[in-house]
Computed example of a mutant assay.
Amino acid sequence: MMKMRIITLSFFVFLIGIGLAGFQTDYQHFFPGKEWKDDRGVHINAHGGGFLIHEDTYYWFGEHKIAGKEGNKAHVGVRVYSSKDLYNWKNEGIALEVHEDPNSLLVQGCVIERPKVIYNEKTRKFVMWFHHELKGQGYDAALTGVAVSDQVTGPYTYIKSVNPHAGIWPTNYPDSLKSWPVDLDRYERPSEEWKEAVVNGIFLRRDFEKGQMARDMTLFVDDDGKAYHFHSSENNQTLHVAELTDDYTDFSGKYTRVLPGLQNEAPAIFKKEEKYYMFSSGLTGWKPNPGKSAVADHPLGPWTPLGNPTRGTDEEMKTTFWSQSTAVIPVMGKEDAFIFVGDRWTPENPIDGKYIFLPVEFENSKPIIHWQDQWDLSFFDQNENTDE
């Protein structure tokens, strides 16, 4: 009887120890599209994610979702996780919190999407930008918001949300088009005339005075410290690439139109051997579509389309493995090793959304992705990531 009591007591102490220490994960591989638990044993809740490497640690920022259709709105805020190895992630809490104050633009029930964080070496501040829609207004506002923090995991202090570049023309927009009328009613969508009007900037001119639309977005910091804000604009028909100010908290006023009229969303940027590469998607709402890729010699462009980066079956290529691009992670300690990150959206119950991590390969100087049921970072040692 005494022996049984000792065993029972030891087991009870063991359970308490687990509760105090938290759920311990020991992933040694990626399992794309599968449930992925954090250090607390909960599926990672960081959708539309952005990734920052700081002091030899990876940080994953993303939209915190809740169950049900209302989960696509921001009821909690932006969550952040940390990792040393990219497989196992520690829940670091809420980096940016939404408020109950109805006078705040960052009120519960607004929309916060695709949060991205970059670090400013000069100011020693962490700067977060995100796509922001106002509560009760659907996707009409098309704002981008900014917040800052002294600590990588936050809390982040919200500064403002804006429609960028009010009264400012893109540097690559011809003077000859600036005075053209905004006569949207004359075009039948999607006629060839309408498409031509879009390419010529009819939505750009429409929004010139109030500021441009800024929806799906990402950030990129170049080797010289210059930071750029990529966002889907002009009714999602054209991307804008905007230079940020030296402190990364505002727009410098210098920006370009990129791939006009080609309907790119979900941009994800990385740099390899002095070339800049972009993954993006088409426009099909929450439904997956064929991925896109492009290349440039400078973040501001011009950008050249490279086609669908997905390699696989027809269904896989039509859906980008049932995902949408959100980020590209450079792998620490490995030269020219990059990971494509995509979301598998589940709009009926957003909290169930899964993530796709896949190695980026190159084929004829084009970035491509193949499906992997299971893989690890040794992939980059076995495959030197050179063109085949």
Rank of each mutant, 00 (worst) to 15 (best):
A197K: 01
Y27V: 05
L262K: 12
I369K: 05
R79V: 01
Y277T: 07
N236E: 14
R344Y: 03
A21W: 12
A74R: 06
G71E: 06
P181W: 09
I168H: 01
V78M: 07
D85Q: 11
I16Y: 02
T218G: 07
G62M: 04
V221H: 05
G33D: 14
T346R: 13
L143P: 03
A242R: 09
G353N: 10
D150G: 11
P305Y: 04
V198D: 01
G68W: 01
L300E: 03
M128L: 13
A266P: 03
G253Q: 00
L20Y: 12
H229R: 05
R186T: 03
G307R: 07
E70D: 15
I94D: 11
E133C: 09
F380Q: 08
S161K: 04
T245A: 07
Y277L: 10
T157D: 10
G201H: 07
G307M: 00
N88I: 11
P174C: 08
D185P: 00
S179E: 07
K366F: 03
S252R: 05
I168Y: 04
D185V: 00
G201R: 08
A74P: 04
H132N: 10
T153H: 09
V341G: 09
V76K: 11
R124F: 00
V13T: 13
T386N: 05
G312V: 06
I269H: 09
Y59D: 02
M213D: 12
